[in-house]
Design a protein around this nucleic acid. Structure first.
Lengths: 207, 207
DNA sequence: TCAGTTATCTTGCAGCTGTAAGATAACGTG
DNA sequence: CACGTTATCTTACAGCTGCAAGATAACTGA
């Protein structure tokens, strides 16, 4: 029992997990996740198939672990939702789309129709959590009215924004990125602004 | 060769496909799609396993075909984005969430983390297409300015809205629907209104 | 360094997958 | 109805899956 995602002190464990993650990311650049078997990953990683099962239930679980760092980098690129001091939002969004395009094959293979619902769900949750955090931090800093927006409203807004970004990104990736990252940012930014409860377009949540 | 989704005149084909679809929907109410094998579906449908493969590549492809009618019903419930004569938007949205809750187990099993990326992608595309259609019809009816919003902008808005709705719905389903459908509609409607280029909050697309 | 722990490897198994070939029987058409 | 067509069924096979038991070897902590 060397349970799943918990970081381990044992050198062997780190070595095996790293080899598996590396092998999976390599393979995911070559073909869709649905065409990658546990045997494939284990062989490319130079690890026995049973060792794979000692760490992960299936390919999807490994994929989740393997892409978490990349996903977090991606989320870190997103603009802060709040004050937006110098209109840096669009530039930040452009960096987001550019990074997406930089690993387009990988993201398509993991998140596209032949990808993994498990990974897609993981990304959605993580993105929603990040948005929710920023909304909270945001609301704390701003002198809100007598009563701030209720919890449920924040949750819905976070899920809404996370889903929207994933929808736009997935659509763009599947069309092979016809628009430049900068243009995508210009097209997407006004939509996000319109939702921002603290931003210029204050049509945001009020119920 | 009785290729995939095309409707067939042959009684045997219709019978087999209907039996498979019915069996899959039954099983999908009982457990996650990832735990449903081709053998399971074929057996429950009273059909040989090879007959399954004569019609569909795998369980995901059958699931796509089997849930298309339900999905289209769901999409049909969504409010028209345009003039919104009598503020019927929220009510329409409430019907959408209510229908979702009515088959919560099924939708969770198909679209959740243990569901199918293929089905999820299909739903996303279909929803985005529906939104795009309404935007187009909408723009045609309204006396737009000298130049209407460009194609790309409409596509991004459609993908944005489709993703957002799926994000909110998925989040709500996974939390076991703590809010009533009506409340969900009340929380979601202002977000959609804020995006509507023709609606009250005109922070919509302009670039 | 030594001892105990434990990660990995090997072997083996039952079940599912995806495909193929040929036999049977139901179907639509004239 | 009789015909040709074709959907379905049966049988078979190689490969992958998920899991278990036992042997080996690498690691950690003293």
């Amino acid at each position: 029992m060397k349970d799943g995602g918990v970081p381990s002190g044992d050198r062997r464990v780190r070595r095996t997990r790293a080899a598996l993650a590396r092998a999976l990311l390599e393979l995911a650049e070559e073909r869709d996740l649905s065409r990658i078997s546990v045997s494939d990953v284990a062989e490319r990683a130079g690890v026995s198939r049973t060792a794979f099962y000692d760490h992960y239930r299936d390919v999807h679980e490994l994929a989740e672990a393997a892409c978490t760092a990349m996903i977090d980098d991606l989320i870190g690129l997103l603009p802060a939702s709040g004050p937006d001091p110098e209109g840096e939002g669009p530039g930040s969004l452009a960096a987001f789309f550019a990074s997406l395009a930089g690993h387009a094959g990988l993201y398509r293979g993991l998140l596209g129709p032949r990808g993994s619902a498990h990974v897609a769900d993981h990304v959605r949750r993580r993105l929603a959590a990040a948005v929710r955090d920023r909304l909270r931090r945001d609301a704390a800093g701003r002198p809100s009215g007598p009563t701030g927006p209720p919890e449920a409203s924040q949750d819905v807004l976070a899920a809404f924004v996370a889903g929207a970004l994933i929808g736009v990104a997935a659509d763009w990736l599947q069309r092979e990125c016809p628009q430049s990252p900068g243009r995508m940012a210009d097209l997407t930014w006004p939509l996000l602004s319109a939702l921002d409860p603290g931003g210029r377009g204050d049509a945001g949540v009020s119920a």
